[in-house]
Amino acid sequence: MDAMIRVVDVHKAFDEVPVLDGVSFSIPKGHFAALIGRSGHGKSVLLRHLAGLVRPDRGQVFVDGEDLAHLGGHALRRLRRRFGFVFQGGALFDSMTVLDNVAFPLRECLRLPERSVRERVATALAQVGLSGSEAKLPAQISGGMGKRVALARALVLEPEILFFDEPTTGLDPITAQSILDLIARCQRDLGFTGVMVSHQIPRVFDITQQVLVLHRGQVRFDGTPEQLRVSTDEVILGLLGAEDAAGSNGRSRNGLET
């Protein structure tokens, strides 16, 4: 299958501290990949490389065959119009209403007539279950609703590639699961290639076809969720074990509370 994203030997250091140390992998077109690993091991930095927000010190990042490092301002902006990005904090424009936030890319990138803009915004908001919230400001909605608005804004241009930077961070387990289900449904319906940085292990495995484990700036594992589950690698066992422990702690806490 054709690779939509191909990363070749990417190195990156900040203040001479290496963050990515020879990262290579590829993600086929239409696949949804989870990028997991411990905090501070370079997941978000790698995601920013894939979106062209950060340039590697060494190595190449190809998106649909185009090397991001060699694209200038205009060409990079043209390629980015095929991207969507859901930020950890939502990155909603706080001076704009929900409607204007979702309409912003339609008005500025596609310059559609206002009537079409409103129709597409209404469809996108209905898709994420937020019909009727058009007039609210980001400060007036909950964290979960903010993530949904961010997802609607990312989806409204019908991107071919969608990046998610910990889209469920800071949400309660039920809302987090509903966001993951929503992302899975949108991916099935729209067929975009997706990359998600997530700590929602093992729930994220249910919606992805590929898992990349980043450890100390290197790809420690690249395979399917099924292969990951039977891996005997100590780093992976540690990650899965930590999540199991967190899950059972959560269950016992819940048990005590009830």
Binding site: F83, F85, A91, F93, F104, P105, C109, L157
Partner: peptide
Amino acid sequence: GIMRISEQLDAMELMGLN
């Protein structure tokens, strides 16, 4: 500054806008 730290400027860039 707040737009920068809350990634609103990055969001604009990723929409292909300057």
